[in-house]
Design a protein around this nucleic acid. Structure first.
Lengths: 115, 115
DNA sequence: CGGTATCCTGCGTGATACTG
DNA sequence: CAGTATCACGCAGGATACCG
């Protein structure tokens, strides 16, 4: 393994930047998380509405990614004790603070795809 | 497969947003691309300097991701006909325009990690 | 110095069927 | 309605050795 330049201050600043970026990418990464988060920025949604608004996702993947987003504190899962059952998802404050990031991703993409 | 709501205008707007986000994530995604891009925002760098500033990366992965970044038009590869050989990498205009995105990723991460 | 060439592994994702 | 349970698999990523 190569030698680390552990005393270089610039390196430490870079490591912090790297850390921030990879933390963010790991929480919003995953095939369906950006789409889910984006939809929830418009407000609370039921499970079925979320599912129908992302036609390509399988229920397995939708639920898996919802659970991860919940675990990471980005969304809240609201269960109503009714028949038939009703479950809604909404962004937490932390989740809402992602809106700027999602917009920046979306804007850059809009300007630069179309080779 | 479930039915698509292909006439819903809101859905189309969402699809555009999704597209932009996933295009961006696919170009800056990958384990080492954010780190590489971030370093190059400080200016031109030699291959060996890049490699040494990211101690954990293997040469295989470094080169693979450099090639993809080049193919996507984010960086330029400058080869000097010297002995010993010298290769430098620098951001293109398109690559430079990513700086805002990278900063937004890094800033959100810095504020929100540390559970 | 700046890379390639092989081989290998895990994990993220998908298809499909079933359930409280 | 809102999920689970299984099975399967490709491919991003890593280890290691070698090259012009």
């Amino acid at each position: 393994m190569r030698k680390e330049n552990s005393t270089n201050t610039l390196n430490k600043q870079q490591m912090e930047k790297d850390c921030g970026m990879s933390y963010t990418l790991s929480t919003i990464g995953g095939r369906w998380k950006p789409a889910i988060l984006w939809r929830l920025t418009h407000g609370k949604m039921r499970y079925s509405a979320l599912r129908d608004s992302i036609p390509q996702v399988t229920e397995r993947m939708l639920v898996l990614q919802l659970r991860e987003l919940e675990k990471d504190g980005l969304i809240k899962r609201l269960v109503y004790a009714e028949v038939p059952p009703r479950v809604e998802y909404e962004l937490t404050e932390k989740g809402n603070s992602l809106k700027a990031v999602l917009n920046s991703l979306s804007d850059w993409g809009a300007k630069n795809r179309i080779s």
